[in-house]
Design a protein around this nucleic acid. Structure first.
Lengths: 153, 153
DNA sequence: ATGCGTGCAAAGTCTTTGCAGCTTC
DNA sequence: GAAGCTGCAAAGACTTTGCACGCAT
């Protein structure tokens, strides 16, 4: 029985930043919150985030967004996904059982999510074997969707 | 007991190309062979491949390389990996039990390989559930290596 | 007060594309 | 012979970086 997962708070973020000699800023807090309020499983690109913030009237530069998401990914707060052909996408790195993985179609570029607790367990075992601390694990299944199988390519 | 895995021959490649109305060329054959002769687990970028070919005296343009590796990845012959920060890497998509996965350190960028037969089994089950045909599956564990844990970031 | 972070614009890097000529089927 | 493929150069797309100013500590 898993306990409800407490949200990663701005204060926790601040503390982690301080521990490394870094600083909390309004921009970083807004970006954290924005990711936390994204519907589950939704992953966005730097540019997507920029537009979301623009529409909310938050003027945070693209540079800052790029710098911040990279920082947060390195801290393990965000997962960096490379599912689309062209650009990276990010999403909150939810702990199990919210952890999910992706099924990707090379023909239609369709992306489906699925969950499987075994993946994280396997990952933790493997990481332990090599002395790694796990921040995230992603199983990406690349294949051809039913629609893709019908198309002639 | 798995039977020895027959290599994917130029003829098989040719046949698959023809089935789609495409053509075999010397460049494509050389690229296929180059990937097949790479040490197991070695994955290279388009530019790496370009340099390898240059050194072998094969003048194949970067454009052709980009076009060919993308084509071969879509055909399931190559796996497209996004382990490095910047560019895509490719390797032959070996069938089980040669299939391997990656453990990546966000601090040192170190990449380790490991094998685990369960991953492919799980992937096939999941794909089946959604009607997908599996071309490849990649479990990437992102974490911090022992060396990375010692560094101050 | 110190020095990290932000914004802007410019520069970079990897990748794609238009086109003419060559090659494969 | 028709259509796909290659090479070259140019264009494109995403991301990073230099610098001056502002803000967190």
């Amino acid at each position: 029985m898993a306990a409800p997962q407490p949200a990663y708070t701005p204060d926790a973020f601040r503390a982690e930043l301080h521990a490394k000699g870094w600083r909390m800023t309004p921009q970083r807090e807004i970006i954290l919150e924005t990711f936390q309020h994204l519907p589950e499983g939704e992953h966005i690109s730097a540019e997507d985030l920029y537009e979301i913030l623009q529409q909310r009237g938050e003027n945070i530069s693209l540079s800052t967004i790029y710098r911040t998401v990279k920082l947060m990914a390195r801290m393990g707060i965000l997962r960096e996904l490379e599912l689309a052909e062209d650009r990276k996408h990010y999403e909150i790195n939810q702990p199990r059982p919210y952890h999910h993985h992706h099924l990707l179609c090379v023909k239609t570029n369709q992306v489906l999510e699925f969950k499987d607790d075994r993946i994280l367990k396997i990952s933790q075992k493997v990481a332990e074997r090599y002395g790694f601390k796990v921040l995230d694990c992603q199983l990406t299944i690349v294949g051809i969707s039913p629609e893709g199988q019908r198309s002639i390519f």
